[in-house]
Design a protein around this nucleic acid. Structure first.
Lengths: 186, 186
DNA sequence: CCTACCGATCGGTAGG
DNA sequence: CCTACCGATCGGTAGG
């Protein structure tokens, strides 16, 4: 892991605990046993740290969703794949997900626009899957936005749950979460 | 509305937009067309504003849950009542819910403890309702924690949805949300 | 990677 | 409710 990557993972952990605005460059440096000024030999500023954390994991969601959409399978199967995608990313990047969920509004303009675009595209793809499922008679004809929101809100806050009760085996989580979220709409 | 209440609702709106730490006392004062120093004639400090916002709405949840628990009805009926409680509070205090969800960790020690206690009690009551429902055969025997989490995560982020698509009639929201969240577990 | 430092901004107070 | 101000802390830079 490069020094830059060390800074980013340390920062992600602190941002998760206290939020981006409440963490100072001195906090990050102290956690690494160096001085704040030394951070600037590896990164351009605090904003850059935030954008690396958030955009990297946002791109993982984008790639994952692209794969799901390209699949030749039923809508329900696609929803299952999306749930699994969220669980996998949660397990591997739970600190980054805290920043993505809580601190995205502190991105600077260019990165903010890129992030919002990715999030909107992601939601639109998910919405289309749900609508296709309803049209095919696989999913109950509830208001699609309500279905989208209730599933997505659970998946988005999965990181909180994983951090508190991480002991529960990931496979149990995967199986039960799929059951609870899917069985309600089929 | 007293001047103090004006400060609190103005602050809640700004905290919702940018987060507690990113909003300065000068920001709050400017939004009210006064100077920052004048705020201190009505409140003791920034911390007090945050704690009034969060603890007031936390107490509403506590009271509401107490009423639900005291009811003489089925577990499913109680879950429905909890969902309705969240929707009602979301409609009336959506700014405060943003602070409750995102800025609770910035409460000072005494208030932080009180808040965490209320949240834990609330979750425990909800957990008990779900377990009773499973024992009574009303709710499917999924892992109770997974059911609790998936419903609660949706209810907790309802304010985000309400703020984006508030146009959707509250009664439609109530009906469809109850359907989507409940039908999956019965 | 460090010491030394800068201008800006913060929450808050004194005194009217 | 205001002007004037304070000490602390912030992100960041210069120069080695």
């Amino acid at each position: 892991m490069s020094r830059k990557e060390e800074i980013i993972t340390t920062a992600a952990r602190l941002f998760n605990e206290k939020g981006y605005k409440a963490v100072s460059m001195r906090d990050i440096a102290t956690a690494m046993d160096i001085k704040a000024a030394s951070l600037y030999n590896h990164i351009n500023g605090k904003q850059e740290i935030l954008s690396e954390i958030i955009l990297k994991v946002a791109e993982e969601f984008t790639k994952g969703m692209t794969n799901v959409v390209a699949e030749n399978s039923s809508a329900i199967k696609k929803v299952e794949k999306v749930i699994e995608l969220h669980i996998d990313i949660t397990v591997n990047h739970s600190d980054a997900l805290a920043a993505l969920n809580n601190d995205w509004m502190h991105l600077e303009e260019t990165d903010l626009k890129a992030f919002v675009k990715m999030r909107e595209d992601y939601e639109e793809n998910f919405r289309r899957i749900i609508k296709q499922g309803i049209e095919a008679g696989e999913i109950k004809p509830y208001h699609p936005e309500v279905i989208l929101f209730s599933i997505l809100s659970t998946l988005r806050t999965l990181y909180l749950w994983y951090q508190k009760r991480g002991k529960l085996d990931v496979n149990i989580l995967k199986k039960d979460m799929v059951s609870v979220l899917i069985k309600g709409i089929v």
